[in-house]
Computed example of a mutant assay.
Amino acid sequence: MKPIVRYRRRGGSRGFTLLELLVAVAILAVVAVLAWRGLDAITRGRDAISRSMSDERVFAELFDQMRIDARLAVSDDETGGSAITVDSSGLQIVRTYPGVEGQAPRLEVVRYQVADGLVIRYASPPIGSFSQLRRAMRNGEDGTWSSVPLMNGVKAIQVSMYVSPTGWTTQMDDVRSAITTNDNNLTIPQLAAMPLPRAVTGLQVSISAQTLKRPINRAFLVGE
């Protein structure tokens, strides 16, 4: 008779096999990668929104200042020429100076220029005589002018002027021709008592920036 062999089941819990550990590590790695990508996308989106809001705020400040300067532009007969000048260097506006109550009104020449991608607004000191005004309009900025940087990363500023009856133009010859026509019309008796009309009644500004896919355009009334 063969002896009866009895097997006893070992007590305690069974451990993980190497294959199970590898599968668990692989799953954790996939979850970590997905979580990192999601967090990275959220961070990038937040940064993009912050940059966009910052750019919009800078654009709003720049255009608002241009709108104010255009609204305060003087008439052409006060400057002996065009109060608005556009050339390859930028935009120039002759405007009234926000003086102190009780003082005689004075004028101010402001210029918007782009240098190394930075838009700078230059402003002359208060001008009280016609000779000072002509010098400020012809000459460059000196140490008496104030300068305020308004926006960085700008490729170019293009300005168009609305001149009747030509329409939108970038040529100062059209402006001078309109001024000559307006001067000649003053010799007509029926129009002699009327003030000299503005040659430039509107401005359209187009700004190209590195952060923009296409330029941003704004239009302003002159002297309104």
Rank of each mutant, 00 (worst) to 15 (best):
D173E: 15
F220K: 06
D142Q: 14
M1S: 15
I4L: 12
V159R: 06
M161S: 03
D142H: 11
G128V: 00
V119C: 01
R46T: 13
S50Q: 13
L150P: 01
T17N: 00
I42P: 00
T43Q: 09
L34T: 10
P197L: 02
D76T: 02
V119L: 08
A60P: 04
I157G: 01
L62H: 03
R6G: 00
D76G: 03
L19N: 03
G117E: 09
F220N: 08
G202F: 01
R138K: 15
D69F: 02
E141H: 09
R10K: 11
S147Y: 07
I42G: 10
D64F: 11
L39N: 08
P125S: 12
R135S: 11
T96V: 11
Q65V: 12
L18S: 11
V114E: 03
N139G: 14
L186A: 10
A41S: 14
D55K: 06
E78T: 09
D40G: 08
Q92W: 02
T187F: 15
S54W: 13
A41N: 09
S13R: 14
N152W: 13
A35C: 10
L107M: 14
K155C: 00
Y7I: 07
D64L: 10
N182V: 00
I27M: 13
R111D: 04
T169K: 06
V58T: 14
A35K: 06
V31G: 11
V222E: 01
P165C: 08
L150V: 03
P165M: 10
Q103R: 11
R10Y: 06
M172K: 06
E78R: 14
G45P: 07
A115G: 05
Q65I: 10
Q171H: 13
D69L: 05
L22Q: 07
A29M: 12
M172E: 05
E108H: 01
Q132N: 13
V154C: 04
T211N: 12
